[in-house]
């Protein structure tokens, strides 16, 4: 028995060591650093208590980024999940060319982020971008989509949805294919319409997948930074600044590492609360096979 426990811990050791080194220790480090001032030249960091957090309360860009991130999450998560489900249901049906269609839906996921951002940058370009050509051809006026505060965030949201939906579709597709066809036949024999079958049988059976996707979507929404860097750099006037982008700016553009650590801690708390909430509230409603 004793021996078994030792072997067990030894087997866990490599994974645990990596997790501690690259995940848990940095978290502890960030929390620690957030209570210290930023070291400058010969001046070592000094303990300043909650000063960094007080600065945050007064930081307008932080609040703007927080709100932006909230809108970004609300804009991307429900739409990308709904789209993913719709696409999965579509390509799961028996029809010609569905392999091609599956590949087409999944392609955005395979493309590198930088390339994707650059493609969309071209779509949104004023005057000769694809979107502009389309709107002027239809007789609408020109508009600087990424350059105006009112539309920039929405543009970034569209790119994120386009990139995420195909990825989530794969999970839904896998889950749909694990539902035996005899269930739909049994439902058909009882006179259930396709809608009724979808609502009462398919969606509940997809709930574990939905929960998994939801957690991933929330994490993705909060850690979005690469599109922003390539497409807008947070502008115009911080209209597309998201939390992690703000952290990145403070930490690696302004080198205010103490404050960046405090911002990171807030980001972590937001994520932890969101994930915890999802698991506590949704887990009860999820049926695991």
């Amino acid at each position: 028995m004793r021996n078994g426990a030792v072997t067990g811990w030894l087997l866990l050791l490599p994974a645990a060591a990596l997790l501690v080194l690259f995940t848990h220790w940095p978290i502890v480090g960030s929390v620690w650093d957030s209570f210290y001032s930023t070291p400058k030249g010969s001046r070592p960091p000094v303990f300043i208590g909650l000063d960094n957090y007080q600065a945050m309360v007064a930081d307008e860009v932080f609040w703007k980024s927080l709100w932006n991130n909230l809108w970004f999450a609300l804009g991307t998560i429900p739409v990308s999940i709904a789209l993913a489900l719709a696409m999965a249901l579509w390509v799961n049906s028996t029809m010609r060319g569905r392999t091609w269609l599956r590949m087409a839906f999944f392609t955005p996921t395979v493309l590198p982020m930088i390339a994707v951002a650059n493609i969309w940058l071209f779509f949104y370009t004023p005057q000769y971008g694809l979107l502009e050509k389309l709107t002027t051809a239809l007789g609408f006026g020109t508009h600087n989509w990424l350059g105006s505060e009112s539309t920039a965030l929405a543009c970034v949201i569209v790119v994120a949805i386009w990139k995420e939906a195909g990825f989530f579709m794969i999970f839904y597709l896998a889950a749909l294919q694990s539902i035996p066809p005899s269930l739909s036949e049994a439902a058909a024999l009882e006179g259930a319409s396709r809608g009724y079958y979808l609502r009462r049988i398919v969606l509940p059976l997809l709930m574990p997948t939905t929960l998994f996707i939801l957690v991933n979507a929330v994490i993705n929404a909060v850690r979005m930074v690469d599109h922003i860097i390539v497409m807008t750099k947070g502008g115009p006037n911080n209209a597309t600044s998201l939390l992690l982008f703000h952290v990145y700016q403070v930490g690696f553009s302004f080198w205010d590492t103490g404050y960046a650590a405090a911002l990171t801690v807030v980001l972590l708390v937001v994520l932890a609360v969101a994930a915890l909430g999802q698991f506590v509230f949704l887990d009860k409603k999820v049926h695991y096979q």
């Binding site: 005899s182 269930l183 049988i201």
Partner: peptide
Amino acid sequence: SMVFQSYALFPH
């Protein structure tokens, strides 16, 4: 009505 080989019961 029909009884399937795999029973086709709704697991949830």
